Simulated assay, not measured.
Amino acid sequence: MSDATANTSTQDQEAQFGDYVALLKPRVMSLVVFTAFVGLMVAPVGVPAVVGFAAILFIALGGGASGALNMWYDADIDRVMKRTQSRPIPSGKVAPGEALSLGLWLSALSVAMLGLAANWFAAGFLAFTIFFYAVIYTMWLKRWTPQNIVIGGAAGAFPPMIGWAVATGGVAIESVLMFALIFMWTPPHFWALALFMKSDYDKAHVPMLTVTHGRPYTRRMILIYTALLVPVALGLGLTSIGGPLYMAAALVLNALFVRGAWRVWRRDEDAARADAYGAERRLFRFSLLYLFLHFGALLAQSGLRTLDMGGW
């Protein structure tokens, strides 16, 4: 079947509600929502429950808008990469123009409603985050430099700062360190994925570090960035939102992350291929748990602090 015939046949498929939801990248959105929620909850200033719920909803919509704009622009890459070929646009279920319209409308709606529900500083922060992900990362960094994940990771690191800004109307060392935790976590997380998905990036001509510098160099950079991540994670425990529970969790999680990065660094390609890149896959999966548990520990520490103060 020719490409033209394939495109015609796929465009005949009728879009379902789930296809439009898929455009919003719900897995990524779940991380955005959770980290923004933690940023909101650990802030020293409380907000009414209705305001907090509305703020998280509109932050989630902003994250979904970024995903839709990303899928619109990256449709050509997604058609080539095996793990993205089933996405709504390359599969022909949603037209590119529909994805663009959805992304733009949700961007405007989420920013305007967050400003009205919370404050305009947080709304401006959300607008900048959407712009950074859709334009700076997707349209520029991703196709231009192997540092795409390093710099572009800032887009995924802003949500806890936005949540903090919803409550406080500003920025503090605590919110900056929450940003830094995600920012430093992003490179080893994605490079671990790239190690066992390198052929996809090769075919799509995306200058991921594995493509431009090779796997051994990528393994070394995973270990270096993991070492840089550890003091950020532990330093967060020394701020006003840290405490014994968070610090205990951070010590264990970072020890395990360093061990995983060390094992990935020591691997040669023959051993990695023979094991189907098992160590790399395990590090990637653990990295998801790593971030979730760090923010979960911050939330639990905040709950304990509230109990100690007689708030419950």
Rank of each mutant, 00 (worst) to 15 (best):
M309I: 06
A122Y: 12
W191E: 05
T168M: 02
F257T: 04
E280K: 00
L195Q: 11
L209A: 11
T168F: 05
L236V: 05
R267H: 03
I222Y: 10
I162L: 13
A297W: 02
F131W: 08
F128S: 09
A227C: 12
L177V: 00
L229F: 14
A15Y: 06
L102D: 12
M184A: 14
T8N: 05
T168I: 01
L106D: 01
M1D: 07
G152A: 11
L251D: 07
G115D: 00
V232D: 03
I222Q: 07
T84I: 08
G39L: 02
I149H: 08
V80C: 03
A112H: 05
G296A: 02
S240H: 10
L102I: 15
I89V: 13
D12T: 14
A6C: 07
L100N: 14
A60F: 05
A123Y: 13
G243V: 10
L57V: 14
Y277Q: 04
I89S: 04
A99T: 05
A123Q: 14
W164F: 07
T306M: 05
S175D: 08
G214D: 14
A108F: 10
D78A: 08
L209S: 04
T10I: 00
V111P: 09
P188A: 06
G237M: 10
A255T: 14
S91C: 05
Q147A: 13
F286I: 04
A300M: 14
T84N: 13
L253A: 12
M221G: 00
L304S: 08
M81A: 01
A261E: 01
S66V: 09
L307H: 13
L228G: 10
L289I: 11
S101H: 14
G97F: 09
V111A: 08
T145Y: 15
G64P: 05
A276S: 15
Y246W: 03
E98R: 13
R267T: 04
S66Y: 04
T210V: 14
V230T: 15
F183A: 02
S287Q: 10
Q16R: 12
A117V: 09
K82M: 13
L181Y: 03
K82R: 15
V80F: 01
W164I: 09
L298S: 07
L141P: 07
G39S: 05
W312S: 03
V166Y: 01
D270W: 02
H205F: 03
A300S: 07
R285L: 13
R285Q: 06
G52L: 05
S9L: 10
L304I: 15
D12V: 11
G243D: 09
V38R: 00
I224M: 11
G163M: 02
R87S: 08
S175T: 11
S287R: 09
A36G: 00
V80Y: 02
T210M: 02
L234K: 10
L57Y: 04
S199F: 05
A95I: 13
L31K: 01
S86Y: 11
G152C: 07
M1K: 06
R215L: 12
F190C: 00
P90D: 10
M41Y: 02
A255I: 11
P44T: 12
R87D: 06
I151K: 01
S30Y: 00
T35S: 06
F158D: 02
F125L: 15
N70G: 13
P26L: 05
A172I: 00
L299I: 06
Y217E: 15
V28P: 03
L223E: 10
F132Q: 01
L69G: 15
W312E: 13
V80P: 00
L304V: 11
V47H: 10
R219L: 03
F121Y: 15
